[in-house]
Amino acid sequence: MNWVTIKRIFRTGFLSFWRNGFVSFASVLMMVFTLFIIGLAIFTGVILGTTLQQFRDKADMNVYFTTDAQESQILALQTQVNALPEVASTQYISATDALANFRELHQNDQLTLQALDQLGNNPLGAVLNVKAKDINSYGAIANFLQGGGALQTGQPQIIDKINYFDQQHQDAVNRLSQITTSAKWIGLIIILIFVLITIAISFNTLRLTIYASREEIAVMRLVGAGQGYIRAPFLVEGVMYGFIAGIVTMLLFYPLTWWLGQSTASFFGGISVFSYYIDHFALLFLIIVGSGVILGLISSYLAVSRYLKI
């Protein structure tokens, strides 16, 4: 295929798109609907996925130390804990910081604050916050700490108590994650059905568009035009529908995610669809516009083939 032919094909495609203005408009509109549903599917998947992750990330372990524990001992223990392969991160909160946190937490509770003042000295010990890489390894870390493996024998016990994500908590989170996982699947299946239906509608719209041109296609065949030469401008038109619809859909998602992001960020545990939209714009653009172009291309190809048999 030479340059002149390619130029003619594109010119014919563009001209036909322009001259059949209303049909083109309707086809693009239908395609926008499809791509919009695909976009919604992506956003729903992201929200469900991150919400589940948020639940898992909330799990942690607090090691409370006795008030007489030395800071050097605690820091030494922190180093040991950090060295464990199961541990993702640790955070040391000194007794003073713990008191400050406590005071801030109860700043409107005068009774408690007065009682605290009565005590004179700091009743709170230091705290080591541990985050494990996997939700199931907290038990092992607690065993390590309690079993004294971390402390040299003979030294006074410095750990007051360990508050961790035990079996009971874990069961609760597991159930929650089961619910979110099944919610995710049901949601995805429903969305998938929607996507399939809208693809079918889009496909049918393009078929009707090309059905209107079936006599033209027959005439072109009789005049002696080759199959490829007849088909190509229709493919150009299909790709144009998809491309324009993709751009329109991406533009529609800007105000929509902005609005949704504002009202749902707190509900879905901090993930804002708007920031997701902005951060992953290139990827979303590729998926949405790419889907449109491929849908337009395949629909047109199949629809024209029907009338090319003469």
Binding site: R221, L222, G224, Q227
Partner: peptide, 12 residues
């Protein structure tokens, strides 16, 4: 064959 049909029809 179908793909040569165009070429053939241009003779008529």
């Amino acid at each position: 064959p179908n793909r040569r049909m165009g070429e053939f029809r241009r003779k008529i």
